[in-house]
Design a protein around this nucleic acid. Sequence first.
DNA 1: CTGAAAGCGCTAACAC
DNA 2: GTGTTAGCGCTTTCAG
Lengths: 333, 333
Amino acid sequence: MKATIYDVAKAAGVSIATVSKVINNTGNMRDTTRQKVKETMEKLNYQPSLMASALTGKGTETLGLLVPDISNPFFSEIAKTIEDRAHESGMSVIICSTDENTEKEKKYVELLQRKQVDGMIVASSFHNIEILKGVVDRKIPLVMLTQDDAGLGVTSISVDDFKGGYEATSHLLSEGHRDIVIIAEYAKSSKHRIYGYLEAHEEHGIKTSEENIIRTVASIENGRECLRKIVEKGKVPTGIFACNDLIAVGVIQEANEMGLNIPEDLSIVGFDNTILATTTVPGLTTIAQPITEMGKRVVDVIISEIKDKNQKKEHVLFKPQLIIRGTTAVKKR
Amino acid sequence: MKATIYDVAKAAGVSIATVSKVINNTGNMRDTTRQKVKETMEKLNYQPSLMASALTGKGTETLGLLVPDISNPFFSEIAKTIEDRAHESGMSVIICSTDENTEKEKKYVELLQRKQVDGMIVASSFHNIEILKGVVDRKIPLVMLTQDDAGLGVTSISVDDFKGGYEATSHLLSEGHRDIVIIAEYAKSSKHRIYGYLEAHEEHGIKTSEENIIRTVASIENGRECLRKIVEKGKVPTGIFACNDLIAVGVIQEANEMGLNIPEDLSIVGFDNTILATTTVPGLTTIAQPITEMGKRVVDVIISEIKDKNQKKEHVLFKPQLIIRGTTAVKKR
DNA sequence: CTGAAAGCGCTAACAC
DNA sequence: GTGTTAGCGCTTTCAG
């Protein structure tokens, strides 16, 4: 069987209390004792059980991360930075994909609670806010990433969606496009991007209509479908602002199949600047979210909340950045 | 504070043993009692601590998954299927990205052991085999995914790399290409793909040389660099078999920048069939690994090993599938 | 400086 | 049927 603290104590000829002290580097003791214990731990290949220590009040040193779908590049990139930063701070991460599914949301949140995670990060979308209220009530540190706090009174970290939407649209507008369709998601963040889209139009003195705003669920397939529907309706826009790269890629693919040239016939702007934006041809003009900084920040925040609950909650907004690649150009048509 | 089993017992007017029984659905008792306890649990919002139960001998119901880099689409796609399947079986997953870094490998494996995961899945590459020996010695179920068992005597699940390499090369060969470069990784799996590459040549009665085999670390940037180097050497091949999609994408991008037309001037075959293969233009011809089935299979295997250690170890080989898209065509040049 | 002992929340015999 | 009790492996006073 695995060595326990007792085995070490016995082998080293000391008490378990002493061993515990060397494990945690606490208390004072003769250097020779500490040394001896260390050696025995080594020899016995002893690894203190995190379960047991968690049970005695110490934290579990693990974070829960809830994302809609880890196989989506945006989330896997975020997960990577979160994981890295967490490990730097001695924490590990359990990732759960909710699939935008209320059942799973509930199940996973409960699971994470039963596993006594020290804190939870909820990324991008969460439908069952009641569930989250429960974790707040239980005083489990919680921070929202890439979405607002939904009235939970927790800190949230996101990109400035309004500004992102504004910049994407402005870019299109300034290249002469007057017929711009925005393909949004149902999420709150998309709402802000839509406002940005609207604001940009207003500022440029251009009017747009409700018809130019369509919504869908993020996926390549849905992006394609959207373009199909747009075209079916008759008038083809010269610019499309897709609220994320996945949708944008779908639009690009469908456009290609329909024989539309990009960017000559149709300019496209995405959002997120995931790896996908770099693999299309031409490269996708998109709004970058500073994923790395945001990821680092969330874990820093959550860790500081774990150390000291009732920290001041804040709403951190990161600056989006327009990355111009090949899918946008001055209007020709 | 959070409700414990004692709180429930007191509130329901029973003993903790009874509560434990209803939690685990074991033992017999009057239906009314069970009902009453259930209600109290509900009312108190009680959630049994997995820490505590893990400590008493039951498993932790968590799996450790070691991948090189979760932000790589191939791994995030695998992680997703593993996560899904695991949850279906009541297990959660802790994902760790080793970054091909021996230090991290060691750190994470130790961490997972201290967290007492019930089993570990090691995907794709692991350098410090000694470390893995340690987990095998400790009788912790371990299965290798997408790589061979490195003499550990554990079960491994992977695609038939030899066959994949053979088919990719054969496809190129049968389209008339005679000058085919293979860009491989340093991993064992690449070795088999190279053998497949060689075998295909032999079978077609075509000879190739060592010079046509180059190696690199998987990344878009390295893919680009490889093509650059190949071109610098003078003779440009008409076909390239990249041992994964990431590299293939890099080759495509660089080829585009160099003014080479794909597939007219250069045909490319990738490996993995990740989302990236669908987002390039033209779509990437590639060898698909049945990610979903493989993912399901690993967790099924590991779970059965958890239930019954000293299960027969096997080496499961999945069939690769050539997916023809737009980056390959009959040789023109 | 070091050790004894009381928990942490739960499970699993074994009594009653 | 239901309760008592002895751990699981560790942390943490509090004595010595």
